[in-house]
Amino acid sequence: MSGFGVAFRIGVELVAALVVGVGAGLLLDRWLGTTPWFLIVFFFLGAAAGVLNVYRAASGIGLAEAEGAPAPSDGEPEEQDDDWPGGTGSDRP
């Protein structure tokens, strides 16, 4: 699980950024008629963004443990200084 999981996660992060880069390049090229220059530039930018994503995922803004083992928080909600009434959320993101 872990080896495959890590590889898959890194793949997804990399590919997602590449998709954005290539998509943006194609759209810009179509708009401005500059085929294939924006595609080339944005492919590399997307690749860089992908590497950045992978770096961030690996060096952990919580992502590292996210795919590894779910780490349930140890603190009970009751131990908080403030309570968490479920129904106070007035707006949605």
């Binding site: 997804v12 997602a16 943006a24 944005f42 963004a49 961030r56």
Partner: peptide, 22 residues
Amino acid sequence: IPIEIMSYLSRPISLSIRLFAN
């Protein structure tokens, strides 16, 4: 800045592909 923007824009894609593909 373009790299960061692209990294930001890739979030929904990686989020959706991860769940869907799994």
